[in-house]
Design a protein around this nucleic acid. Sequence first.
DNA 1: GAGGAAAGTTAGGCGAGCCTAAATTGCAAA
DNA 2: TTTGCAATTTAGGCTCGCCTAACTTTCCTC
Lengths: 244, 244
Amino acid sequence: MMSRKDAAARLALTEPVEDYLKAIYELETRHGVAATSDVATALAVAPASVTGMIRRLAMHGYLDHVPYRGVQLTDDGRRAALRTIRRHRILESYLTSVLGYPWDRVHDEAERLEHAASDELIERLAVALGHPTQDPHGAPIPTVDGTVDERPHRTLADLAIGERARMVQVSDKNPQLLRYLAEIALQPGTAVTMIAKAPFGGPLTLRIGTADAMVGPSLAEQVRVEPVTDARTVPPRARKSTTG
Amino acid sequence: MMSRKDAAARLALTEPVEDYLKAIYELETRHGVAATSDVATALAVAPASVTGMIRRLAMHGYLDHVPYRGVQLTDDGRRAALRTIRRHRILESYLTSVLGYPWDRVHDEAERLEHAASDELIERLAVALGHPTQDPHGAPIPTVDGTVDERPHRTLADLAIGERARMVQVSDKNPQLLRYLAEIALQPGTAVTMIAKAPFGGPLTLRIGTADAMVGPSLAEQVRVEPVTDARTVPPRARKSTTG
DNA sequence: GAGGAAAGTTAGGCGAGCCTAAATTGCAAA
DNA sequence: TTTGCAATTTAGGCTCGCCTAACTTTCCTC
Ligand SMILES: [Mn+2]
Ligand SMILES: [Mn+2]
Ligand SMILES: [Mn+2]
Ligand SMILES: [Mn+2]
């Protein structure tokens, strides 16, 4: 009998392998499960290709797979995924903070460098940045030993009229959205107040600093916020100086 | 009839492809020709694998191949090779100058990053460094448009007794050698005088600054120098502050 | 000029990652 | 409960980049 591994050589953590594990981790944390077709969409490959890779990853102990029922990361799988995510987010931070990259263009660069950089390089970057805890888009950076603070957040769309909040995070995968957010000065750490909500999926009016901005509901759903109880703008933890 | 390309899709500049072109370029400039077996040694692959890749590179116009007679880079091939070499050397420079990497460990890191970094990143690094013209090992950095100043150099072993020279370059591929050179403070830009040469391949005595060092002839052959006519130590062009 | 060694190429094969087309399974609606 | 559709897996096939073993060519030596 055999179930996993056996005589097989250890699976090489190639670029595709790392990207699959990362995608499965992200789907699992966001939606509870990682469906084959969702992984396929995320990685822009055919569903059949995902099935093949899942078989290989399961064989090597990175995930548990019940055919037709779904997939679940093992501890090894989660560890490997978080390692890649840490690399990705530290790279994004360095590119923006030190090299002046605009925050809408760091993702693609980090997507490739995350596989090529050595552990030593990543830790040198982390040191140069003073061990950052969030990336430029507000995503938490896993520690070396694989701890992350992935708190669930409300979105801008959830804010009641008059409610005040601090922007905490936005997906890094939509450059157009990121450019627009930069335009209206809405970045992690920024305080924002819901001024008005037009009915039937109409635009929302926000106050950001002294200016007002109108945004659509689909944008508002992608921006994660943390309600602010008192009038203070400064976040409870470290303040970040993002972008330029 | 067909000779090259035809219906074939454009060759992807993958990591192996870029490394082959780079290796062929380096052998061609150092020895005039790039022998199949030398490429195989340089890349640690079997000679048969080299033949296969050569076929593919020739088919796509990156080199001219006469079976059993050798290989020659075309303009396209040289351009692609120099692009990778520029990336490699800028990365090495950045890793040492900015991130404090020791010069004996930058090569391996650059060997992988050179394929993953975008043009934009490389040029940002170049700007941050003030457009360096040499890498930490003294190798000239090709310009964006593919110009290099690959002058032939004498080696330390060629120096006559009493002759004074400036160290200009050393191969980046031997970490042990690099560590030893750092130990005796022999780096690009350093002035060195030949004090004595023991006969029959015996050790050479060098004066570096105020200290003397004894080195073997095989080391001396790997260190490239430029004779200094007057007593000045400052090189004719830009002075480099290498390593730390 | 004839061997023979060394260099190079060809033949055949393998795994990784991808694809399309054809099953198969699960689920939800009729 | 049947049926139909969507999701998933299987089957078969492709390219890339590598391997070993067997061959051909070159070139050096006698
Ligand atoms: Mn990203
Ligand atoms: Mn990636
Ligand atoms: Mn190097
Ligand atoms: Mn390389």
